[in-house]
Write a protein that binds this DNA or RNA. Structure first.
Length: 155
DNA sequence: GCCAACGTTGGC
DNA sequence: GCCAACGTTGGC
């Protein structure tokens, strides 16, 4: 009974939550994803999956760390909290709309793999790499084993 | 079911 | 702060 490990890239605005924050808290529920495609990816995650921690909307966007999935998907509690900015009045505990996983710290990259460097390897990464595909804005996206290896070789 | 208006993402 | 590209909403 072996399962193939899957890989993902997850974006966060470092002013909001950075790899240093994750290093401090060790594990963090990935709240606030309100995009159906990203949600579907999170629902398919399994404990042990690898995560590239990407800083977006910052001076030098890029991959700054490695994390891992440390829980199965479960309903995002913020959707039920009227005080939360992620509150969704159309969601109920009986039929939750939004799911998340807990993400655990693995390591901080010695040198970030910048978006610029990633773009420079666009050809090897392939057309299907959603991070640099034109027009895609996904905050959670799949990474193949080959892409994972290539991206981390740029550290 | 169409589509205009609006909100969000995220690089620059 | 700008703006392109998307996704969602709601009137019809």
């Amino acid at each position: 009974m072996s399962k193939r490990k899957h890989y993902w890239l997850m974006k966060s605005e470092p002013e909001d939550f950075s790899i240093d924050d994750l290093a401090r808290v060790r594990t963090e529920p990935w709240t606030g994803v309100r995009n159906y495609q990203a949600r579907n990816f999170m629902r398919s995650m399994e404990v042990g999956d690898g995560v590239l921690f990407y800083h977006s909307s910052t001076e030098i966007p890029g991959i700054y760390g490695v994390a891992e999935v440390v829980s199965a998907a479960y309903p995002d509690p913020t959707q039920f909290n009227p005080k939360s900015k992620y509150f969704d009045e159309k969601s109920t505990p009986e039929q939750p709309r939004w799911f998340l996983v807990d993400v655990g710290y693995v390591r901080t990259l010695k040198h970030p793999v910048t978006l610029e460097a990633i773009r420079a390897h666009a050809e090897e990464l392939g057309e299907d790499f959603a991070l640099i595909r034109r027009g895609t804005r996904l905050s959670v996206l799949p990474v193949s084993a080959v892409q994972w290896k290539l991206l981390l070789s740029l550290e």
